[in-house]
């Protein structure tokens, strides 16, 4: 076993164990924190593969942003110390069956990948990838995704505003007593 294999084994085991922790744990915050370690492990794999930007972006967006909010929300809304959500037998069977099916699908998909080595000598970069994603088609007839991309981002903005509207503090009827306003 080479040094690389050993590193990969450590990262992959850490991610897999944490992923199991997410589904097996019955406390919401514990699940969230296992998910966090799983994301860290996966971004470690990205670093390992030389895709540093992807790894860093995953850490910043998911681990540093989204998961903080999830954990924060969980801590604010639990009713007691170490709140547990009991899972019945039906839940285990249904969830387990679905996860097994998904796992089988993913294994099948990942085994059917064939890598195509590049034949041209140009250095690969993120430029062409960005151009393909956001439009500016190099050849006529190619689809540009700029418009759908913008629509999706505006959709997200609308959702955010709606969420803020729904979650805003409901104003109580104004009291006649001035103390209530500045107290």
């Amino acid at each position: 076993m080479t040094f690389h294999d050993a590193l990969f084994l450590i990262l992959a085991t850490a991610s897999a164990v944490s992923a199991l922790g997410v589904v097996v744990s019955s406390s919401i915050i514990r699940s969230a924190i296992w998910l966090l370690f799983m994301l860290m492990g996966v971004s470690g794999l990205y670093f390992f593969l030389g895709a540093e930007f992807l790894g860093a972006a995953q850490l910043i967006v998911y681990v540093g942003g989204t998961m903080v909010l999830v954990v924060f929300g969980g801590m604010l809304t639990t009713r007691g110390p170490f709140d547990h959500v009991p899972v019945g037998l039906v839940g285990w069977v249904l969830g387990g069956g679905l996860s097994l099916a998904l796992f089988a699908l993913l294994v099948q998909a990942s085994l059917s990948f064939v890598s195509h080595p590049r034949t041209d000598t140009a250095l690969p970069g993120t430029g062409p990838l960005g151009l393909t994603l956001l439009g500016v088609p190099e050849t006529p007839g190619q689809t540009a995704y700029l418009l759908p991309f913008e629509i999706v981002s505006i959709h997200l903005l609308v959702v955010l505003i709606a969420a803020a509207y729904l979650a805003r503090a409901k104003r109580r009827p104004t009291s006649t007593h001035p103390e209530a306003d500045h107290g």
């Binding site: 924190i33 540093e52 860093a56 540093g64 110390p81």
Partner: peptide, 28 residues
Amino acid sequence: GLDIGILYIFAIGSLAVYGVILAGWSAN
């Protein structure tokens, strides 16, 4: 020579908050 340099520091820095969150929550 890591191209993403400072971005890596921010990525790791954003994990630092979990030390505090985990300590605070698990202490009950």
